[in-house]
Amino acid sequence: MTRLRRMLVLLAALTLAACSQAPAAHEAGQAAAPRAGFPVTIENCGRKLTFDRPPAKVVTGYHPSLETLLALGLGDRIAGRTNFAESAFLPGQKEQYDQIPEISDTIMLPQKEVMLAQGADFVLDNAMASFDAAGGYATVEELDAAGSPVYIMGGWCSPEEVLEFTIDDTFTDLRNLGAIFGVPGHADKLISELKGRLADVRKRVAGRTPVKVLATDGGTGPVNAYGGFGITNQMITLAGGVNVLADVKGDYTEVSAERISATQPEAILVSDYATLRGEAMPSSPAKAADAFAIARNSPAAKDRRYLAVPVAAQHPGYRNILAITDIARFLHPDAFAR
């Protein structure tokens, strides 16, 4: 089975980005009275999206897009979602997930005809992979023309922009979504809470020696690992670590076993797919064992020190900040003892 991150990043290169103005989000059902604060116009992937009123019939793609809307209290707006068989859910979100109609049995949006038939007035996803015409999907342009404007989280609009991601992009998404859905106050409150978490982590790890970290998604030669660009690298740095592959240009990339062996990590992060297991998707302990075997003389291998990081946290979404706290606790447990 093709690995999730590789599929999302590589397919993004195949998608034609829309360059023209997207139409205003269309209404689902009977016309509603204009709301204060609207129309709202935001930019995403080089396009301007204008909304005359808050979306009411939303389709979400991969897990972080849905859970970000749930964190904003917008679960009642979601009319369809994809399947997250591999995901670990945040507290209270699995129950909401189960109540939302499933329109695709994979993490990808459904094929073109099914997708267009949803009549969505907003589509939220984490990458461009689900809008690739070559894969049989409705394109961004086709959905825009149908009144279903697309928003890509984290600015993951192209492979280059995946590498340019910063944690500030997460706050931008929350602010934009708050404006689009007419809940700016809720968005500001969530942003304040998350920034408070980050400030607390920075204070706790300040002055401590950064821990040398290897982040891997398994493999023995080559190894699927995370280089010095993108979300995972930033989470390591903000959590008080230093990425041993910081000089590798890439986010999710392949690195030789020899290169991994030479890094001498003190701790290892492993992408965790929770319930998706089998020969094609080893468990987190199995991935960690492979990494320990490759870097067998490293401090991490000697201490068997690793942390499973939910793969959903390694894609744009508000869980990025939650994961930074978890990683910081793992790297600097003494800093959280008080």
Rank of each mutant, 00 (worst) to 15 (best):
Glu193Ala: 15
Glu67Cys: 10
Pro333Leu: 00
Leu276Ile: 01
Gln264Phe: 09
Ala337Gln: 14
Gly240Glu: 02
Leu190Asp: 06
Gly136Lys: 13
Asp290Trp: 11
Pro39Glu: 10
Phe89Ile: 06
Asn224Asp: 09
Ile152Leu: 06
Lys48Ser: 15
Ala280Ile: 03
Leu16Ser: 08
Arg202Cys: 04
Val40Ala: 03
Gln96Trp: 02
Leu322Arg: 10
Gly29Phe: 00
Leu109Asn: 09
Ala293Phe: 04
Pro222Tyr: 03
Tyr252Pro: 03
Thr2Ser: 03
Gly136Pro: 14
Ala133Thr: 03
Lys203Phe: 00
Tyr252Asp: 01
Val213Gln: 12
Ser271Cys: 08
Arg259Lys: 15
Gly92Glu: 15
Ser284Glu: 07
Asp217Cys: 05
Thr209His: 04
Tyr273Ser: 06
Glu279Trp: 08
Ala267Gln: 10
Thr275Ser: 14
Asp217Ser: 14
Thr50Val: 01
Gln21His: 14
Trp156Cys: 03
Ala288Phe: 02
Gln99Tyr: 10
Gly135Met: 05
Gly219His: 12
Ala295Glu: 00
Thr209Asn: 11
Arg3Ile: 03
Gly37Ala: 08
Gly241Cys: 08
Leu66Tyr: 04
Thr253Lys: 13
Leu4Ala: 00
Ala79Asp: 11
Pro310Thr: 10
Val255Trp: 08
Gly135Phe: 03
Leu269Val: 11
Ala32Arg: 15
Val270Pro: 02
Thr139Tyr: 05
Phe84Glu: 02
Ala12Trp: 01
Ala17Glu: 12
Ile191Asn: 07
Val242Gln: 15
Ala323Gly: 05
Arg35Gly: 13
Arg304Tyr: 04
Arg197Ala: 00
Gly230Ile: 01
Val150Trp: 06
Met115Thr: 13
Leu72Arg: 10
Leu143Cys: 04
His332Val: 04
His63Leu: 00
Phe38Trp: 04
Ile103Ser: 09
Lys57Tyr: 09
Ala301Trp: 12
Asp125Pro: 04
Ala28Trp: 14
Lys94Cys: 06
Pro159Thr: 03
Val40Pro: 07
Ala24Pro: 14
Asn44Gly: 08
Tyr97Arg: 11
Leu331Arg: 04
Phe165Trp: 11
Ala12Thr: 15
Phe131Leu: 11
Ala313Leu: 01
Ala328His: 06
Asp52Gly: 15
Ser20Leu: 01
Gly75Thr: 10
Thr139Asn: 12
Ala335His: 13
Arg47Pro: 05
Glu258Tyr: 01
Val123Glu: 12
Gly46Ser: 05
Lys195Ala: 01
Val309Lys: 07
Tyr273Arg: 11
Leu49His: 03
Thr15Ile: 00
Ile294Tyr: 06
Gln30Ile: 05
Asp251Ala: 07
Arg305Ser: 12
His26Glu: 10
Gly135Ala: 12
Lys57Phe: 01
Pro159Tyr: 00
Leu124Asn: 09
Arg175Thr: 13
Met153Asn: 08
Pro64His: 06
Glu279Asp: 14
Leu11Met: 11
Val255Gly: 07
Phe131Trp: 13
Val58Lys: 09
Gly147Ile: 08
Leu174Cys: 06
Thr41Trp: 04
Ser283Asn: 08
Ile294Lys: 07
Val59Trp: 07
Asp334Tyr: 10
Ala133Glu: 13
Gly185Ser: 09
Pro265Tyr: 01
Ile167Trp: 02
Gly240Asn: 05
Tyr97Lys: 05
Gly241Trp: 05
Ala280Asp: 13
